[in-house]
Design a binder for these strands. Sequence first.
DNA 1: ATGCCTATTGACCGCTAGGTTAGGGCAAGC
DNA 2: GCTTGCCCTAACCTAGCGGTCAATAGGCAT
Lengths: 227, 227
Amino acid sequence: MPADIKTTTADARITAAEPRASSPELRAQDSRDEILKAATGLFANRGFHETSMSEVAKAASVSKALIFWHFKTKEDLFMAVLSGLLEPYFIDFTEEAGALDEKAQIIRLIELYLLFVRDNAGSIRFFVAQLLHDERPSDGLANQVMQLYDGYRTLLVDLIGRAQNNFVCIRDFPPQAVASMLLATLNGLLIGFLFAADQAVQVESAVSMIRQWLFHDGPQVGLPPSL
Amino acid sequence: MPADIKTTTADARITAAEPRASSPELRAQDSRDEILKAATGLFANRGFHETSMSEVAKAASVSKALIFWHFKTKEDLFMAVLSGLLEPYFIDFTEEAGALDEKAQIIRLIELYLLFVRDNAGSIRFFVAQLLHDERPSDGLANQVMQLYDGYRTLLVDLIGRAQNNFVCIRDFPPQAVASMLLATLNGLLIGFLFAADQAVQVESAVSMIRQWLFHDGPQVGLPPSL
DNA sequence: ATGCCTATTGACCGCTAGGTTAGGGCAAGC
DNA sequence: GCTTGCCCTAACCTAGCGGTCAATAGGCAT
């Protein structure tokens, strides 16, 4: 009989069903994925500190020790989750819209931004919370996100500069300022998304206003009806 | 000799200096304030779950038990901190700018927003993180903030509507849409503030662009040089 | 002086957290 | 058939958590 009966973990895992892969490596990959999946959901919904490893273990139908076998610490698991979440954030814009003129490219960039925000509101919410929360600059996450953001910004500055040279875009301000302004507006729409999804109807008119401001366009349809 | 020597709290408080108030009530008020001050700093910098009551106690130079004498639970303390932080958010705009015309009032509102953001970036950061983090609608905090936000928005819609009637403001879109757009842009500038304070130089040109968009103003100085 | 009342404390408790460890199951190579 | 090495687990450990409590110090009215 054990000397210490503190541990009263119910551990009501489903041991039947789901025939595991036979090969050790496959089994390992399987369990690793399951853990990552469970951890992603829990971390995203409740944050880092409010999620315990035991919860992750239960959600993944796996023993807690196995998590520590796959990931050395809780932070390790968290980082793995983060990089997994960041993957869909990398888009290649240059290939997609090389043939369009500057104005169309700018509009397409705005579209992509808003579509992306709509489809990834959950993880964006998670990332923003994470970025706001941490103070440490050595995070890596902040750097990655900033890099992404700067890429988008650089693209915009370049496009706006060329559009200004072609006289299709407002020329009262330098391209950097216009791009910053546009990005600020998009970010504002983003946080509108994050806090109240029912404001999505306003996006159309917002885009219309952006077009009017940037290109002196009259009100018109600029986005696919899906938005 | 005690049977349990787990508690090894160093408790290196400064017992000298700082002559406490003599009256019991004053002493109580004193310690309560000290606790609130310490808790505010810790909660704001590290969040709710990452801050322990022992840390608060040490930061306030007070025993942990005293905190629980003043505040029944940790949540209680947190709520007290929250309402304390929310206080400076209530401004009275109507008194201040009753004599200005609509355009000047709108510009003044934008100024107030940006000045406020600049001066309260820390607590705003805290609130946004908190709002992003919680899912529960019974929070109270979310309601308070939203109420504040809606007040500002209503004021803007009203002002813009009147400005449109006087033909001093763009009339291509309904006042609600224009106000939403303006708010989104301001919020975007806000999160620029939160993530990179060095972008503050852009605010001036941003305001200039907003003026151009709203009133077809040419580039000009719209904010006090302090911004 | 005394007894009261409130502000304050150190010691303590139950519990859960992240993390460890000793070992069991099991496919693969000899 | 036995060892080897990888997955995986139950049980365990310690630190620290939020929270409680009996005991006090010390101003105050009597």
